[in-house]
Nucleic acid binder design. Structure first.
Lengths: 348, 348
DNA sequence: CTGTTAGCGCTTTCAC
DNA sequence: GTGAAAGCGCTAACAG
């Protein structure tokens, strides 16, 4: 099994010779475009299959100056959030005849920038980026390339090209209002370093703003690096409980997984949730569907987002001028980890 | 912001003209290969940047008959397992100068087959597939293409090309031996339909075989479709508890997420784990690191697997003939969801 | 070190 | 409906 040298790969010319037609007829037959009789087309297709002809997308893209490729960058695969958005987008692109390729940036603008540069070099039909936080150079390269670009996940007022997402700052703000309504006054936060996950940072800022407007002091916040998941939530909560100088009555977590980790830590320490402290997550991740004590969270419309994003990008690729930026609604789901403050705890 | 037409993109020729050199010098300078003086190289690079020249990988690949692209197919993004394998592989490929592109197959051979066909059309340097269960046509296309192909995750005696993974049947077998040693005699299983996740099916078969050899009857098995995650585990357990005609003392789950879902269902029903029933998962997923009641599971070496897989494929790409198939060890971790049978339960 | 020539494998364009 | 000619943007191979 050695790599075939360039000469022994069967190419369009071989099929044409075998079929006794010109390479143009083969080209047309393979692509399913007009210009070959039905009979001839069938013959060509049969021969192509027999010869195991695999048309080169590289040569095809170069000649046609157009590819059916869409590049997608997600920050991480360790997070169920992007899996759902991605699955929805991918299905839509596939239906429209586009092939999706994706890669991860691990929340690093520099990784993303390198990826964008390489992706542009392949001249894809479209590019999808997660979030709205990108290096200046990334935005500049993309704009200059003229490649339709979708930013998904966070809403933005001035997208690189087009954008579909949610308003993270407002999501944090709304959640805070709800908590204030329940009677919470001393929030704490467990999340990531400010520059690591910007969307989360925006939620935090919106959250804090609501409490500030209400006149409440912000208790304490813990920033973890690296693992924005179960472990980070548990370790962050341990740190919070150990180091907090002021009291707090509710902890806002970066996402549901971290919130779950935090809940485990509190359980281990015999802290009553929500009796002693409330817990709030974000996203409405799968795990929340099986918990006996459901985490209060904001449910993000991930499938809708992926579908709308794909539709919008496809429109853009087809030369239409869709609305440049769409914001989708987020829904708060009160679970069993918060309660009306002052009442006894409720169990799920 | 319209798509640039093919004529107004800056190309190698434009850079050459501006720099007053031949296009070959630009080509050499851009690729960082020998054959241009340091001074000229720098001038060219400066001009290229000023002109915002982006070399076309499409044209480059066609001319050089070689691309620095590696295509990877993972079954799903909803599963932390592949995230870790993938992250490790990606890093290794990147270091070696290769660009990785991913796509998902959602455990469908037909999806994978289509993906492979499209991927081959791009003439990548290598291809990575998850698992060893592929359609005949997928294997045939890959073999004929001559593209180095790595199968990762499951070990195989006759890989398409090369393979790095674990022996799933043996992993199931070993876990069963351990449970038998603990005193369990009536296992039940909650997993997926036989053809959906073949690796899991192999684990199940190894598991069942050990019990059969020991003389124990297999209690009951529940096969879920679709969601092989928290929800599937919980729903499957509910179904198992409702429908099982024979008693069972331990439930083997397809993975830790399903096991966790099952544990929640038992908790809700007041079933004592491991007092009444034991729970066993697979993989050693992150969630298990934060649970107060740790799930007994098999820990799979995902990072090592990704690294070894990448190294092996790179060797293969570079014309070496690495060991065609490597099996990595799996480690059993006894948690708090199983106990020595006959003793009272233990709490974490 | 530098440039010229001849493609890579396919599609566009334009005749017939 | 069919095919010949002319590239797509770049690199290998070779000559200077």
């Amino acid at each position: 099994m050695r790599m075939r040298s360039r000469s022994d790969r069967v190419k369009i010319e071989d099929v044409a010779r075998e079929a006794g037609v010109s390479i143009m007829s083969v080209s047309r037959a393979m692509r399913g475009v007009e210009g070959v009789s039905a009979k001839k087309r069938q013959e060509i297709l049969d021969i192509a299959r027999r010869l195991r002809y695999s048309p080169s997308s590289v040569a095809g893209s170069l000649a046609a100056a157009d590819s059916k490729l869409i590049g997608v960058s997600v920050p991480t695969l360790d997070d169920a959030v992007f899996g759902e958005i991605f699955a929805a987008m991918r299905a839509s692109f596939l239906k429209a005849g586009y092939q999706t390729v994706f890669d991860t940036s691990y929340y690093e603008e520099s990784h993303e920038e390198i990826w964008v540069e390489r992706m542009i070099a392949w001249r894809p039909a479209g590019i999808v980026l997660s979030g709205t936080q990108h290096s200046k150079r990334t935005a500049r390269m993309l704009r200059r390339s003229g490649i339709p670009t979708l930013e998904i996940w966070a809403h933005s007022q001035d997208p690189i090209d087009i954008c579909v997402g949610i308003d993270h700052a407002d999501a944090g703000y709304q959640m805070a209002l709800k908590l204030i309504e329940l009677g919470y006054r001393r929030p704490a936060y467990v999340g990531a370093k400010e520059n690591y996950d910007k969307r989360a940072q925006h939620r935090f800022e919106g959250f804090r703003r609501a409490f500030k407007e209400e006149g409440s002091q912000f208790g304490c916040s813990v920033r973890m690096d690296g693992l924005l998941s179960f472990e980070g939530g548990r370790a962050g909560t341990a740190k919070l409980l150990k180091s907090a100088r002021t009291a707090f009555d509710v902890v806002y977590f970066l996402n549901d997984h971290m919130a779950f980790g935090g809940m485990m830590e509190m359980e281990a320490r015999g802290i009553d949730v929500p009796g002693d402290i409330g817990i709030v997550g974000f996203n409405g991740l799968r795990i929340n569907n099986v918990l006996n004590k459901q985490i209060t969270t904001s449910i993000t419309p991930r499938t809708e987002m992926g579908e709308l994003g794909a539709r919008t990008l496809l429109a853009r690729i087809n030369g239409l001028a869709p609305i440049p930026s769409a914001a989708l609604p987020v829904k708060i789901r009160l679970g069993d980890t918060t309660s009306v403050r002052g009442q006894t705890d409720q169990r799920g």
